[in-house]
Nucleic acid binder design. Structure first.
Lengths: 363, 363
DNA sequence: GCCTCGCTGTGTATCGATACACAAGTAGAG
DNA sequence: CTCTACTTGTGTATCGATACACAGCGAGGC
């Protein structure tokens, strides 16, 4: 606004402001960092000079360098960056993270991940004070890049190991609980699930096949669903897992349709997300099946779309978990337990609603 | 991982790596910034030493300071930070921004806005190379804070002025176009709109009342809707504007219900968002009204929920606009026009669908 | 009247890295 | 054999700000 003519886009330095105000640079510095440290008179002179010169305040990089703090929290998503804004669950989680950032007055830096080897460099070069890593695969190289920075870091929902605290729910126990509801009275159950690894290929597996699952979330939920089925006295081989490469409603619809219209169609579908579950409901409607009589369906996350659809689902507060992760990554004390609560919300897409409508869990 | 015992959390410096590798610091610097500038032999020594010491690469703040670039793009949302993740339209826009950031290898820093005076400081202290400002009010003080940084900046959808380019659609023309569809055959039209200013108070106005609207988006759309009504030969006083403080479906439902159940109920509702429009549809269902016969409804943005609801709406690509804003704020050349395209998508909630189903606009 | 304390302003020494210019060594042209 | 051109390694001088220690000064206690 009031930048002096001659150097139109040049940002003035603190020294220049000091010179114009007739004080030392340190006084200017204190005006910005510890206003109570300087006299009102001196502060006024400095502020006037700053306004005159159009000084926007201390240079962020210089301040960061000298102070040793960046003033921002890094968030790493294992996927393309825009994923965060496409996936409503990731968005919820980020809302929790951003709540904390706003309260603490720190920025929120999303580290762009593309899948290329350069991702590690991006992590290393991020000007942040800590990292929150959104759930990813066991072998994701950015995890090493994060630990190598030496900055405080937390992982949401796994993988474990590498010395980083993991914050989330007990996915296996939760899956066992909702699996019990989903599979009640079923003879041919199906799990509609997330990818096994970062290759994101389509699969159809049975419960007795040993298979390497690199995504801990997928693995834990699958184990939980299998627990639910086998603990009811059924053979693991009867349980199938349909792996959807992408967490999207159409993906769930397509895969579910295929199976429902094939020989040996499922009569119960437990999905790892509400999106996939809603796809299954669409497929059921298309196939003319009655829900829950012909087909029981459960989702996961209790998103906004679940209630209107009457979807039985597993509720967890991703927003709280995001907030918790942020606080932890910023080194703030937190009283929350690493294992968050969850509960089964029984609605109308399953055969035997829990008597109370709710099954809870925590750790 | 391989950090030497003794200084467990201390990040090694480039000088230390140089010492360990038996080369000069400059050589180490070149290994990271211009690998082709050093011999393979020297590079190998440096990489080995870096691995040994657990050197994560150049310190971001130091690098930024010296190079004069931060390597990140700042995004300012006029609201609380978590707003971005609650509002699906903001999320779409951010997805476009993040696409560009990922492609350009720069981070995406969300500047936390709380409404407090300290917001200006946060903007000034953000370590970024440019700003994208999500549409806000004319008198939002963060706009001045952004211009004061002297960094390249663009505003999405207004306000104009302050020397920052504005990227978006012609809201007034677009509103006039969809208003024509919404109000066709109507006698008592209503606009369901956004807040007038940052105070976010509830209002009910008529088209002949002069009123100060601080949000340019609200103002332009309202003017466009009024154009549609008056150009059809009706008196402005017959058009009403119901101001919803928050862009949420329940907000639209509540206000619409109130009016539909009152005396002089509207027979056409043009909403400034799909969320508000869906609220109006719910209110209509509750009131037992037939859509579009008893009540025509239009939305804005063509969000994912619009098509299933058969909602006539105004489509624009916020994702493209976000990408465009990001490129502009990073100083990248762009061939896109500042005025983006829009079109009316006529579905079943309006009385006279456009013959082609589509009305286009750009500038 | 002296001494201690609190308030303010100011030098000094970095924080960690990189742009730039220069020097040394090597290779190829004539 | 000399000269130019290219490769590759190395000092030097910052980038802009702040932690820290110290100095000057008026006030208050005994």
């Amino acid at each position: 606004m009031n930048r002096p003519a001659g150097n139109p886009k040049q940002r003035p330095t603190m020294r220049q402001v000091a010179l114009a105000a007739g004080v030392s640079p340190m006084t200017v510095s204190y005006v910005y960092s510890q206003p109570e440290r300087v006299s009102a008179e001196a502060a006024a002179k400095v502020r006037a000079a700053a306004l005159e010169l159009g000084y926007p305040g201390p240079h962020p990089a210089a301040r960061s360098l000298r102070r040793g703090r960046a003033g921002s929290l890094g968030v790493v998503l294992g996927e393309r960056l825009s994923y965060a804004f496409d996936d409503p669950q990731a968005a919820r989680f980020l809302a929790g993270v951003s709540d904390v950032c706003a309260a603490e007055g720190v920025g929120l830096t999303l580290v762009p991940i593309t899948g290329a080897p350069s991702d590690a460099q991006r992590v290393a070069q991020a000007a942040v004070d800590g990292f929150v890593v959104w759930t990813t695969s066991d072998d994701d190289p950015v995890l090493d890049a994060v630990t190598d920075t030496g900055l405080p870091a937390v992982v949401h929902a796994g993988p474990h190991g590498r010395g980083m605290p993991v914050i989330g729910i007990d996915d296996r126990a939760a899956a066992a609980a909702i699996g019990q509801v989903a599979f009640a009275g079923a003879r041919r159950p199906l799990v509609l699930g997330f990818p096994l690894d970062r290759s994101r290929t389509r699969h159809l597996l049975t419960g007795d096949e040993p298979v390497g699952m690199k995504f801990p979330v997928t693995r834990h939920r699958w184990e939980g669903f299998r627990d639910a089925w086998t603990h009811a006295g059924h053979p693991a081989a009867d349980l199938r897992l349909a792996v959807c490469p992408v967490n999207h409603i159409t993906e769930g619809e397509t895969f579910a349709s295929e199976l429902l219209e094939g020989t040996d169609p499922p009569d119960a579908i437990a999905a790892m997300s509400d999106e996939l579950a809603l796809g299954a409901l669409r497929a059921a409607a298309r196939a003319g099946l009655r829900v829950p009589d012909d087909l029981a369906v459960t989702g996961w996350d209790d998103s906004d779309t679940a209630a209107p659809a009457g979807l039985t689902t597993l509720a967890q507060s991703l927003r709280d978990q995001g907030a918790h992760c942020a606080r932890a990554a910023l080194g703030r004390p937190t009283r929350a337990a690493a294992r968050h609560e969850w509960h089964v919300v029984a609605r109308t897409t399953t055969r035997r609603p829990n008597t109370t409508g709710v099954t809870d869990g925590a750790a």
